[in-house]
Computed example of a mutant assay.
Amino acid sequence: MRAFVFPGQGSQKVGMGTELAAASAAARAVFEEVDDALGQKLSAIMTEGPEDQLTLTENAQPAIMANAIATLRVLEQEFGVSLVDKGDCVAGHSLGEYTALCAVGAFGLADTARLLKLRGRAMQAAVPVGEGAMCALLGADLEKAQALADSAAEGEICQVANDNDPTQVVLSGAKAAIDRAVGLVKDYGIKRGILLPVSAPFHCDMMQPAADAMAEALAATPPGALALPLYANVTASAVSDPAIEQDLLVKQVCGRVRWRESVLAMREAGVAEFVELGGKVLGPMIGRIDGDSSVYSVISMDDLEALAKAL
């Protein structure tokens, strides 16, 4: 069995998609449709920057999605490889869950771009700049990270935001609590704590205003039928019902990204091969979660050609 997976925020960089757009009309069509849907030249920011504009949450989220869907369209149209024919399930890391839903036809491309633009704006606006923070804990498993978060909270919000792999967990919450957590890492047998360069504390209870905004947006633009099952971030289990997934997307804004558990659940279901489209972030995580699985991370035309031959 094979899973197609899609990266989340942090995988953006200036120049993303440039090679694909130069080589493929299918990729160019994706970038043009996203530009039209958003009423902005997002593709120009992706290609030329400036970097501070690309890293803005409201730009990074649709940009990462557009790059991954362009990669998928090239695979399908230039190399004749159908995700639905070659895949058994999909998953995405945080915003990547929207990309995965687009890939299996639950959302159209334009709607996905608009939803992610709104999601990015809502997440940014939920907490005033400077009041929230996130940190990555290196050399931490979930148990150590949870104990550290509980200790550092001191009445403030300090929660596990991402359970990425057995060696990396991310905390999110109030700035003072996250600073305390970074200062306490050695006491909990954790190798390092690193403050992340993010503008808001994603995937914690401080994001409730953004969850409310997404509930309204998804009520107006609900997901349709999924061509393949999706492993949802907040449950780490397979979903095929669009109504259930709509509710999970709302919960995802404040909820934990259970990526490690999602990968293990896919492996348990029989997935032996993972294909990451549009990034090279999830592949290494998957390798640390389960070294026996086969992983392809695909961003270039050469990567796509190699993948098409392998499939």
Results as ranks from 00 to 15, higher is better:
123 M>G: 11
1 M>A: 15
90 V>N: 05
182 V>Q: 09
131 E>C: 15
208 Q>C: 04
139 G>S: 10
31 F>V: 15
211 A>L: 03
159 Q>E: 08
278 G>N: 07
162 N>R: 02
254 C>E: 09
79 F>L: 10
283 G>P: 10
73 R>D: 04
276 E>H: 03
227 A>T: 10
45 I>E: 09
219 A>G: 14
121 R>F: 01
231 Y>F: 14
284 P>A: 10
118 L>Y: 03
218 L>Y: 11
64 I>A: 07
81 V>E: 03
28 R>W: 15
137 L>H: 07
252 Q>K: 06
95 L>R: 01
188 Y>K: 05
26 A>W: 07
143 E>V: 12
95 L>N: 00
175 K>Y: 02
170 V>H: 00
98 Y>N: 05
216 E>Q: 12
39 G>M: 11
115 L>E: 01
139 G>L: 06
227 A>W: 06
109 L>I: 10
158 C>A: 08
169 V>E: 00
174 A>C: 04
8 G>N: 06
65 M>H: 06
45 I>G: 08
120 G>M: 02
42 L>N: 12
243 A>C: 10
252 Q>H: 11
166 P>T: 01
196 L>F: 01
163 D>R: 01
102 C>Y: 00
184 L>N: 01
252 Q>D: 10
239 V>Y: 03
164 N>P: 14
221 T>V: 14
110 A>E: 14
206 M>G: 11
146 Q>T: 14
129 V>G: 15
177 A>S: 06
43 S>Y: 03
170 V>R: 00
18 T>A: 14
117 K>E: 09
67 N>S: 11
250 V>P: 02
64 I>G: 03
254 C>K: 05
276 E>D: 04
16 M>Y: 11
10 G>N: 11
190 I>M: 02
51 E>F: 13
61 Q>P: 14
200 A>N: 11
147 A>P: 06
63 A>F: 02
89 C>Q: 10
97 E>I: 00
